[in-house]
Amino acid sequence: MSSTEQGTSSAAPAEPTTAPESAAAPEVPESFYYVHGKDKVVHKVSAGALQHSALIHGMISNLGYTEEQAKANPFPFENIDGDILQMVVDWCNQHKGKPTPPEDTNLPKQKEKLFDLVLAVNYLEIKELLTYCCKQVAMMVKGKSPEEIREIWMIPTDAEDEAAEKEAKKRAGKEAAGETAAAAGDAK
C-alpha cells in the first residue's frame, strides 16, 4: 500500500514548552486520521480538516484513536476513486479552520469528474463543497436551450423515456411468461 502524506507534517505531538504561568491551557496536539479510496492510496488528514465531512467527523468524534490506531485503521472509501478522494482531501486541507468563500472556482470542469465529485462529497457529507459542486453543475446549462441541456446532462426526451419504459415492461412480461411456462413444464 502506497502512502501520500497530506496536511500538516507535524504529526508527532509537540514538545512541551515552558509556558508562562499566566498562559491558558496547553495547546492540544492535532490528531490525524487516515483515509483511502478505491486505489488504496492512504491520505493522512488532520481532524481539523476532516471536520468538513459530517460523516467522518461523526465517526472520529467517538473513536478516540491513538495515532497508531488511526494509522492501522484507515477509513476505507472503496466507492470513491483515488483522484476524487485526493481532490476532496485537498479541499478539506485548504479550507481547514477557515470560513468558506462564497464561490469556489477550482472545481473540475470535466463533466464525469464533477459528477463523481458530487457523489463523493454527498456521501462524505461535506455541505459547503456540495453546494459549490451543485452550483457548478447548474452553471453547465446556464443560457442553454432545452435540446442542449438534454445533450449535456444526457437526459432522454419524455417520448424516449416512455418508449424505454414500455420496452422494459414488455421484456419483464415476456420473462414472467417464460418462467410460468418453465414452471408448468417442471410440474408435468
Partner: peptide, 14 residues
C-alpha cells in the same frame, strides 16, 4: 441554483 430563465428552460427538458 438555476436562475429564473434557466428554470423556465429546464421545465421543457423532461
Amino acid at each position: 441554483n438555476l436562475d429564473v430563465k434557466s428554470r423556465f428552460t429546464i421545465r421543457k427538458v423532461s
